[in-house]
Design a protein around this nucleic acid. Structure first.
Lengths: 226, 226
DNA sequence: GCCCGGCTCATACCAAAGTCGGAATGTGGC
DNA sequence: GCCACATTCCGACTTTGGTATGAGCCGGGC
């Protein structure tokens, strides 16, 4: 039986996790905390194998709580960070604080359950997005001095590959979008109608499997074409 | 159909991989090489989606071959390193060479097939042992190793100074916006209502003298909070 | 006590973004 | 020539984003 401790300031999230984990017959939730400050005590009392820890919490955040837990002599429990966004480089900081894994909350339930199992077994666990961020953190591109190529940002290869899927006109629109311009401004600048710009944007979103123009901007930015 | 190229000096290993991949109906082996020197040519001819690359090879090793492949303009193919040992810290070097993943040969066949699928989709893939090695590489001391100055993009200081004008919650919203999320997603992720998100976004735009959320994303990106 | 600033939420309204279907053009293959 | 396919363009419609205004809650400073 894998003993799990939930740490999240949102009672709803805890309830959701509890229900999710209940569907796994080999694990049980042995405790819950709403803030990092309660965690150390709770771990002493509940003796969990795995802690699912939110990062953003009112007083003591997940990173600090992780450090506190890892400062204890014994190796257990394993700590899996569980958060919603990946923007800040929490990933690196969480790992450095001693987390055994990093998951996103929108990960499919069965994968979270699987991750808890792996975590309990001492395996490291990472959501794809978090892993990508970790990899980017360790692959700073050395400045290419010989090539006429402009500065390659992390992940630039992939970004460029995907931008290459676009038609010439579409690419122009994508670049304009990445400058924060509105469709009307783009239309004026590129001598086309607003509906046409929209059409291009729509095609770009489809081709690149994106959801909105902000993501276009980020992709272009990563490709270094700004 | 996922097109796979096998690169390994051992014909037996190649045969084994070929058989393994044959059990997946959505992939086909389009070529094989026994040395890194043949890879670039072969990629041109076979146009694979994924290269399964051994590290230890007679003349040109897998790391060098990976660098050669990634030096090409187009992003494809994705390169997955496939090796037997984790003793040397090949993991970091492979990732820095441009590999999209790192697998151990003794990984269970279905996991390798799954990894190829993920790799082809652009997801990073790591065997648990390799991931552990990667994590260890970033946990002791991240600062001292290679980049004394993390690339200070032009305007990063200014961007950070302006972000500092925001309140805590506003900053969180800004970061989420910079991930390309919709207001509804942000509301869900940050436990607030959509009107509140809009309110924050509006305040952010006013404070930072911006016009739309794309520009927020660009500012956050410039500030280096990616 | 009071006020103030930050955070929260609501309603309504207008502007911008994105979807859908359709159509004209051009290019390469048969 | 003809077809298939990609690119470019457009307009009508739906969804999302952003503004404006007002309000309630809390914690800190005076």
């Amino acid at each position: 039986m894998i003993r799990v401790l939930l740490v999240d300031d949102d009672a709803l999230v805890r309830a959701g996790l509890r229900m999710m984990l209940a569907s796994a017959s080999d694990m049980e939730v042995v405790g819950e905390a709403a803030d990092g400050g309660e965690v150390v005590d709770l771990v002493e009392r509940c003796d969990p194998d795995v802690v699912l820890m939110d990062i953003r919490m009112p007083s003591v955040d997940g990173l600090e709580a992780t450090r506190l837990l890892r400062a204890r002599p014994r190796g257990r429990p394993e700590i899996l960070m569980l958060t919603t966004f990946t923007t800040d480089n929490y990933v690196l900081r969480a790992l450095q604080a001693g987390a055994a894994g990093f998951l996103l909350k929108h990960t499919r339930p069965e994968l979270i359950i699987d991750a808890v199992r792996r975590g309990a077994a001492g395996e490291p666990v990472m959501s794809p997005e978090a892993l990508r961020q970790l990899i980017e953190a360790v692959t700073p591109r050395p400045a290419a001095q010989d090539a006429p190529a402009p500065p390659p940002a992390p992940g630039a290869d992939d970004a460029r590959r995907r931008l290459a899927l676009l038609g010439a006109r579409e690419r122009e629109v994508a670049l304009a979008v990445a400058e924060g311009r509105t469709n009307a401004e783009i239309a004026a600048g590129l001598h086309m109608s607003v509906p046409t710009v929209k059409s291009h944007v729509s095609h770009i979103l489809t081709k690149l499997e994106l959801n909105n123009r902000v993501q276009i901007a980020l992709l272009v930015y990563r490709a270094g074409s700004v």
